[in-house]
Amino acid sequence: MTSAFNPNQVQYIAIAFSWLLFVVILYLIRKRRIKEEYSLMWLLFSLLFIGFSFWRRGLDIISSFLGIAYPPAALFMILLMAVFLIMIEFSMIISKLSDRNKVLAQEIGLLHFELNKLKRKLHKPGKEKKQGTKPQSGNSGAGVKK
């Protein structure tokens, strides 16, 4: 501990990085790159890190409470916990998404089938008109009126 380096240096770095994390998350939410509901876990843990980077005694208190001899190890534990929780949340989100994805794909298949059936029915009698031309001209007409 009495060696050449400044023991406060690590604290400055910790404060800088935890703030950076917090600000980056907020920035991404603002840019709608992350949805609010999926950012909660990140914000929570970045605030926790900011807290510990200022309040260094806190880490000692927690590590002695948990019986961890080396306080930085408590930090690693919290860090790992954060990563685990966030990853579990991701697995849940992915599962939900893939389930919804499946339902959508099935509906698309079923609807496409019905659509083809209706199309065939429409075209059966004469096939004299091509669809698309008429509704298109109708559309542009309506546009002109306005």
Partner: peptide, 25 residues
Amino acid sequence: ARVITLPINLGIGGAVQTGFKYAVR
């Protein structure tokens, strides 16, 4: 046959279930 084409590959489970949905409806 009637043919339902899925837009993405769902695997056997998702495919068969599409058939069940068709059958029920």
